[in-house]
C-alpha cells in the first residue's frame, strides 16, 4: 500500500472542496470573473475526481485489469490514436451521424404529414409514447440480420431509436402555439402553410430541440450496442467487446473516453444551436440554461 498517494489525493480533495465552497460564496465585481468562477467550480470537481481516482488506484495498488489509473488510460490513448480514429470514423461518422439525420428527419416529416389529420395523431401519439418506453435496442440483432454486419445495420437501429422521440416531441411542439396566436393568424387570413412556417414551427423549436438532444445520446448508444451483435473488425462497440475479452481494460477506457468526448461534443453542439435558434425562450433569455 502506498500511503503518500492516498494521503495526497485526499488532501487535494479536501482543498479543492474547501476552495469550491469558498468560490460559490464569492461576489465578483466584473462579469468575466463571475463567469470564470462558474466554469472553474465544475472543472475543479472533475479534476478532483481524476486525482482521487489516480491516488486510490496507486495507493491501494488496484490491479489495472480492474481499474486502470487515468494516467495509464491517457498513455494508451496517445499510443493508439490510429485505431481509435478508425473506430471513431466507423461508428460515429458513418453510423451515428447518418442514422441521427435520417431518424430525426423522418420523425419530423411524419409529424408534419400527420399534422392535418387529428385522427392519425390520436392513433400515432400514444403508440409513439409507448414505443419510447420500450427497449428499442432489442431490434439490433434483427437489423444486423437484415442489413448485414457493416454500418448500414447500425444506421437502421439508430433510425428506429431516434424516430419516435422526434415524432412525439414535434407533434406536441406543433400544438404549443396558443389559441390566441392562431386566431391572430386566422384574422390575417394566413394559409395553413404560412401559419406553420411563421407561427407554429418557431413555437415548436424548444420541443424539437429537446428531442434532438435526447436523440444525440440515444444515437451513440444505439450504434455502439448494435455493434455487439456483429460488425466488421472496426468500430467502438466492437473494440470495447473484444478488448474486454482480452482483458485490455485500459484500451476499453480509452475508447470510452473517446465516446464520452464525442457524445458530449455532439450534445454541446446541439445545445449551442438551440441557444442560437430559440434565443427568445425564457429558459435561455434569463441567462440560465
Amino acid at each position: 500500500m502506498n500511503y503518500p498517494a492516498i494521503a495526497g489525493a485526499l488532501l487535494f480533495w479536501l482543498l479543492a472542496w474547501a476552495f469550491n465552497e469558498w468560490l460559490v460564496r464569492q461576489r465578483f465585481q466584473s462579469r468575466t470573473a463571475a463567469s470564470a468562477a462558474r466554469f472553474a467550480v465544475p472543472l475543479l470537481f472533475g479534476i478532483t475526481i481524476l486525482v482521487l481516482w489516480e491516488g486510490i488506484v496507486r495507493g491501494f495498488g488496484i490491479p489495472s485489469v480492474l481499474l486502470p489509473a487515468p494516467s495509464m488510460i491517457w498513455q494508451r490513448l496517445l499510443n493508439s490514436v490510429p485505431t481509435l480514429a478508425a473506430d471513431f470514423r466507423q461508428t460515429f461518422l458513418k453510423s451515428v451521424l447518418t442514422g441521427y439525420a435520417l431518424g430525426c428527419g423522418l420523425g419530423f416529416l411524419v409529424a408534419i404529414l400527420i399534422d392535418r389529420s387529428p385522427f392519425l395523431q390520436k392513433g400515432l401519439l400514444p403508440l409513439g409514447n409507448f414505443v419510447s418506453a420500450l427497449p428499442v435496442i432489442g431490434v439490433a440483432p434483427i437489423m444486423v440480420m437484415w442489413f448485414g454486419f457493416d454500418w448500414q445495420s447500425k444506421v437502421a437501429v439508430v433510425v428506429i431509436m431516434t424516430f419516435f422521440p422526434m415524432l412525439v416531441n414535434t407533434v406536441s411542439g406543433l400544438a404549443a402555439a396558443s389559441h390566441m396566436e392562431r386566431d391572430l393568424m386566422r384574422t390575417y387570413a394566413a394559409s395553413w402553410w404560412q401559419t406553420l412556417v411563421k407561427l407554429r414551427l418557431p413555437a415548436a423549436w424548444p420541443f424539437i430541440f429537446n428531442a434532438l438532444k435526447i436523440n444525440s445520446t440515444l444515437a451513440l448508444i444505439g450504434a455502439i450496442v448494435a455493434e455487439f451483435f456483429g460488425t466488421p473488425i472496426v468500430g467502438m462497440g466492437f473494440r470495447i467487446s473484444t478488448e474486454v475479452g482480452r482483458m485490455n481494460v485500459d484500451m476499453v477506457w480509452a475508447e470510452i473516453a473517446v465516446a464520452a468526448v464525442a457524445g458530449s461534443v455532439f450534445y454541446g453542439v446541439v445545445a449551442l444551436i438551440e441557444r442560437a435558434v430559440t434565443f427568445w425562450h425564457p429558459s435561455i433569455r434569463s441567462g440560465r440554461a
Binding site: N20, R38, P42, I224, F228, V244, V252, S264, Y267
Partner: peptide
C-alpha cells in the same frame, strides 16, 4: 449544485451501455 450538476448531465453523454460489458 454548481460542481455536481454539470457532471450529472455530462455523465449521461457517456454511453454507459457501451461500458456495460466491461
Amino acid at each position: 449544485d454548481r460542481s455536481l450538476m454539470p457532471w450529472v448531465i455530462a455523465s449521461q453523454t457517456i454511453p454507459i451501455l457501451a461500458i456495460a460489458p466491461m
